[in-house]
């Protein structure tokens, strides 16, 4: 069982609230999404495990059960080519849930005309594998978003 933590603090909007069909239609997996507070911050590891993908704007951490969680910081942020994102860890690193991985500023992403909404996706999971999924309300960074069994 994997407890998946919110990488950022803000307002939970659910995957359906992500302005991108790949996430909104859960093409890469179920999960939820958070509209982050508009202040500079550090996105954290949602689970304890190994960083298997580390982009400036997105990362995947796989835990010891083989559950891979994708955190995608903002929409179409690949176009920023890393500008405004500072990596605090590297691909291959073993990290602890709650450990800061990327420093960024959601307000700057929004000022550039992009949504800063963060998708938190349970890769390759079935929707039934997730429980207690938070899909609304406000969330603190590090609070539980869902349980993956």
């Amino acid at each position: 069982m994997t407890r998946v933590l919110s990488p950022v603090g803000g307002r939970v909007v659910g995957l359906a609230g992500v302005p991108d069909p790949v996430f909104a239609q859960a093409m890469v997996g179920p999960g939820t999404a958070v509209d982050p507070a508009r202040e500079p911050g550090q996105a954290i590891a949602p689970v304890t495990g190994k960083i298997v993908k580390m982009h400036p704007h997105a990362y995947v951490v796989v835990d010891d059960e083989g559950h891979g969680v994708l955190v995608h910081l903002g929409i179409d942020t690949v176009q920023l080519k890393g500008e405004g994102f500072e990596l605090l860890a590297a691909e291959g690193d073993r990290v602890t849930a709650g450990q800061p991985l990327v420093a960024w500023d959601p307000a700057a992403v929004e000022a550039g005309g992009r949504s800063p909404i963060c998708a938190v996706v349970a890769l390759d999971a079935s929707a039934e594998a997730l429980s207690d999924v938070v899909e609304s309300g406000t969330v603190q960074r590090g609070a539980e978003l869902y349980v993956w069994s």
């Binding site: 790949v22 298997v52 891979g68 890769l123």
Partner: peptide, 15 residues
């Protein structure tokens, strides 16, 4: 999944 907009094709393959 596949998303198409004119000659731009996005192929969703995961991470």
């Amino acid at each position: 999944g596949v998303m198409r907009q004119g000659t731009v094709v996005q192929v969703v393959v995961g991470p």
